[in-house]
């Protein structure tokens, strides 16, 4: 008695050919057999074979276009520069014998997809890019997936399966992130010449500020408000050093306490896009990043107003 390689239920002993999808009960076509051979190395039960027969179908332009839009919008939401999205989508489409043209804006992607051999098979669709937190792991894994599609000629069903597995992977625990960001900003304070008092203050200020940012983001509060409030709270805590003149460099603590909020990755992406000719989206990203920096300054200037000082 062996177990089914897919659902782990016991499966009755079958003639040799069954594992390759040649069983008498369920007839699989060539693409489906290739899929079974590539993915499973044991016998499969009849129910699973039927599911595979239903799911692994010749690709239609509609399914492919929907998948590519999911792929592209997820990638854009994960914080990648535009040319990588265009290349990866083209690569996957090419492995199915299609070519694509894309228009990418800050909030939307328009994808035009066209079969190489028959230009009457084409489709144009538009999809909004969902607001998502940056996720470099998704970028890395989805790029690998696009090469696998290219090299192994994966079926759309497999692509979907792997795509879903990639996007549902858990993030690094938020408490780890909180602790590491606090240490990072303290180290950053040191790079600006802060002493140990300043580093300690910045560590506490960042801890509280970032915690507030996490909590407010979870409650889906407007992200500009989140930035103003976290910058204000973090700088208020750091300003205790100026007020009580702790150590020799309280000003440095005040100045670096808000730097954990600086949107570094959007700034880098915006300039890469500008340099690679995606000028519109480059400018949109720069404007977004600038807006966030203005919010940080507003939060900080509120603290300075309360302290009654301009010196930083």
């Amino acid at each position: 008695m062996e177990n089914c390689a897919r659902c782990r239920r016991p499966v009755a002993a079958q003639p040799e050919g069954q594992a390759r999808g040649e069983g008498a009960s369920v007839l699989l076509n060539r693409e489906q057999r290739a899929y079974v051979q590539r993915v499973y190395d044991g016998p499969l039960c009849e129910a699973c074979l039927q599911e595979i027969q239903k799911a692994v179908q010749p690709v239609t332009v509609r399914d492919l276009s929907n998948f590519l839009l999911d792929y592209a919008t997820t990638l854009m939401g994960a914080g990648v520069h535009t040319s990588r999205v265009v290349r990866n989508v083209n690569r996957i489409a090419g492995s199915f014998g299609y070519e694509t043209e894309m228009t990418i804006f800050q909030r939307h992607i328009t994808l035009h997809i066209l079969q190489n051999q028959d230009d009457s098979v084409r489709r144009t669709s538009l999809r909004a890019i969902p607001a998502a937190a940056f996720n470099f792991e998704i970028i890395s894994n989805l790029s690998t997936l696009s090469w696998q599609a290219h090299d192994n000629r994966l079926t759309l069903y497999e692509l979907r399966e792997q795509f879903n597995a990639i996007v549902t992977r858990p993030r690094i625990s938020r408490w780890w992130v909180l602790g590491l960001v606090s240490l990072a900003n303290a180290a950053f304070c040191r790079l600006f010449g802060g002493d140990f008092w300043a580093m300690g203050l910045v560590c506490v200020a960042t801890f509280v500020g970032f915690l507030i940012r996490q909590e407010m983001s979870l409650r889906r509060i407007n992200h500009l408000a989140v930035f103003i409030v976290s910058a204000f709270v973090a700088s208020m805590i750091a300003s205790l050093g100026v007020w009580a003149s702790l150590g020799d460099t309280p000003q440095t603590a005040l100045g670096t306490s808000v730097l954990f909020l600086i949107p570094g990755v959007p700034l880098i992406n915006s300039i890469i896009d500008l340099l690679e000719g995606y000028v519109l989206i480059g400018i949109s990203r720069a404007v977004n990043a600038l807006t966030l920096i203005i919010c940080i300054s507003l939060g900080l200037s509120a603290t300075l107003l309360i302290l009654g000082t301009y010196a930083l």
Partner: peptide, 21 residues
């Protein structure tokens, strides 16, 4: 170098990189 490494590590985990990176 040490403090820059700590800073980079902390700012990197905000965007959830793969662990090996």
């Amino acid at each position: 170098a040490f403090f820059a490494a700590v800073a980079a590590l902390g700012f990197a985990v905000i965007s959830n990189p793969p662990k090996r990176a």
